[in-house]
């Protein structure tokens, strides 16, 4: 288990990691989520001993990383952003070198190397020069090195970058199978991957920890501003008049619909009440057929975007928003924009 307390890393006047505190417990998969430059890799580098923090402490199984680095590092397997490979070595030579570095007892080395290569499907490349491998295979070698000896704690920095979809699925399965007996911490900015694989998610933005919870609970925290999208065959004004009186609506917007004679209605709910029945009866009584009603639940992406953009606004810095957006339907995208507008007020 890893405990991080009040971690700070400053480069001159720039604070890369700002008072980060969290605990990573055994038997779970943790995800580090954050925009580029948020401090994920820096934090991981500090946790594995590559960098030293400006302030704060890291404890691996109770051992202080700065006081007894050799002891603490024995428990960690690390795959950095760029796999640390020696191009002139063959895969087998490299694995032997890593096994010796990690102080795996001589008798068990061959066995451990073979099992690590089996897990990452490298057996048929064991005599290839690393320089001649494709990016995907290089990534696999890096991963094999990280799981070599099956250390208690495995830290992976963007493990699936550069892999083809088949390999990504294999790596995810590998991670899931390892999670039973190990602690795994992986970082990514592919939201779908993190929410599919991780038990707990930590969102980092601008060096600060803005969320630390299970994906389900994170999505629930957005429930308060759930949105309903309706398509109603009726006149715009009539709809507005009819629906305004319903309780529990924070914000109502009516637009011209796709088909003729229909309107798109976006309702932001307020409070916990389910207003769908009230809407149904209101429309039915006014003879306004509801062609579709859709509940838009907040997804992890919404949580992520909100939390990271809030931190951005706080720091008043201009940065690019994260690019990973799974294809969404038009309506849901609209709903999202409406959500954000309302929140600005």
């Amino acid at each position: 288990m890893i405990e991080v307390k009040n971690l700070v890393k400053r480069y001159g006047s720039h604070t890369a990691v700002d008072h980060l505190s969290f605990t990573v417990e055994k038997g779970q998969i943790y995800g580090f989520l954050g925009p580029n430059g948020a401090g994920k890799s820096t934090t991981m580098n500090i946790m594995t001993g590559y960098l030293a923090p400006t302030e704060g402490e890291v404890r691996i199984n109770g051992i202080d990383l700065l006081e007894e680095p050799d002891e603490a590092k024995k428990y960690i397997g690390y795959l950095p952003e760029m796999p640390p490979l020696y191009p002139e070595m063959t895969v087998w030579e490299y694995m032997e070198f890593c096994a010796e570095l990690k102080k795996i007892p001589r008798k068990k080395r061959r066995e451990e190397i073979l099992s690590a290569m089996e897990l990452t499907k490298l057996e048929d490349r064991k005599n290839s020069l690393i320089r001649n491998l494709s990016k995907g295979y290089k990534q696999r070698v890096g991963l094999a090195q990280a799981v070599l000896g099956l250390p208690e704690i495995i830290i992976l920095d963007e493990p699936t970058v550069g892999l083809d979809p088949m390999q990504i699925i294999e790596i995810r399965d590998l991670i899931r199978s390892l999670a039973k007996n190990h602690t795994i911490l992986l970082s990514s900015h592919i939201l779908s991957e993190v929410s599919a694989v991780c038990d707990k998610i930590m969102i980092i933005s601008q060096g600060k920890l803005v969320a630390n919870d299970t994906p389900q609970r994170l999505e629930q925290t957005m429930k308060g501003v759930a949105t309903l999208n309706l398509e109603i065959r009726a006149d715009k004004k009539a709809v507005q008049r009819q629906l305004q009186s319903i309780r529990g609506i924070r914000h109502l917007s009516v637009k011209e619909g796709e088909e003729e004679g229909t309107v798109f209605v976006t309702i932001e709910e307020e409070g916990e009440e389910d207003i769908r029945e009230a809407l149904f009866y209101a429309c039915a009584n006014a003879k306004m057929p509801i062609l579709s009603m859709q509940s838009v639940k907040a997804t992890l992406e919404d949580v992520f975007l909100e939390l990271t953009s809030e931190t951005k606004k706080e720091d008043q810095r201009v940065e690019e928003s994260p690019q990973e957006a799974s294809p969404e339907e038009f309506k849901e995208t609209e709903a999202m924009e409406e959500e954000e507008d309302v929140r600005d007020l």
């Binding site: 590559y50 590092k73 960690i76 950095p80 760029m82 640390p84 191009p87």
Partner: peptide, 14 residues
């Protein structure tokens, strides 16, 4: 340059 020092410095060697 090759970032292999990351491998060395995160292993249990001083």
């Amino acid at each position: 340059k090759g970032k292999t020092d990351q491998l060395l410095l995160t292993s249990p060697v001083s």
